[in-house]
């Protein structure tokens, strides 16, 4: 998607821009409900709730990822791309071999952010009946009569167990790819 948005072909640019604006501006819960109940009206599916949640989370997060990558690509000095084109590389080659690896370096941190957001966004899947962490916590409270505060604390810790290592991993990769200045 990021490649689309920086490509020299206008239709590809429009496609990339439409995709990004559509999916990053719609609320995640609305996207999920539309995917689950809208597609069947169009004669597609039904897919399982779990698969639907994964697909929608991917579409949604990829819109944010595309914007992050685009920002990263824009930080790479224009001379790099010009030089690559000058020695005869095609646009995909320029992007893939020269620009993108340099862009990646600057966007590792923001991508880590998005990954953590993705883990937490999975709680929205409860609206389409996926038994994820939040919904299970609520069921414990509603049906087993467990008092709410310990359950919520437990859920928070469980999210931390997933997100904290992701944060550390991102920090590690960031140090690994950074240029010594």
């Amino acid at each position: 998607m990021a490649a689309c948005r920086v490509s020299p072909v206008p239709p590809l640019q429009w496609f990339g821009a439409t995709y990004v604006e559509l999916f990053r501006n719609a609320p995640l819960s609305v996207l999920m409900l539309l995917f689950v109940f809208g597609l069947t009206k169009a004669g597609v599916g039904p897919y399982s709730f779990f698969a639907s949640a994964i697909v929608v989370l991917s579409i949604y997060t990829s819109a944010f990822l595309a914007e992050t990558f685009r920002a990263g690509i824009n930080t790479v000095a224009a001379g790099q791309a010009e030089a690559a084109r000058a020695i005869g590389l095609t646009f995909p080659q320029t992007l893939g071999i020269v620009v993108f690896p340099q862009a990646l370096r600057t966007v590792v941190g923001p991508i880590g952010n998005l990954f953590i957001a993705l883990i937490k966004n999975s709680s929205i899947a409860s609206v389409i009946s996926v038994l994820e962490l939040s919904k299970r916590s609520n069921l414990l409270i509603d049906q087993q009569g467990v008092s709410p505060i310990p359950v919520f604390l437990g859920a928070a810790v469980a999210y931390l167990i997933l997100t904290l290592p992701s944060g550390f991993l991102v920090g590690y990769v960031e140090r690994k790819v950074s240029i010594k200045r």
Binding site: F37, T40, F49, V127, S129
Partner: peptide
């Protein structure tokens, strides 16, 4: 295992 926030969504699930 299937439950939603409102009954209208349950009815949608029944329709599908």
């Amino acid at each position: 295992s299937t439950s939603f926030g409102t009954y209208s969504l349950c009815v949608e699930a029944l329709a599908d």
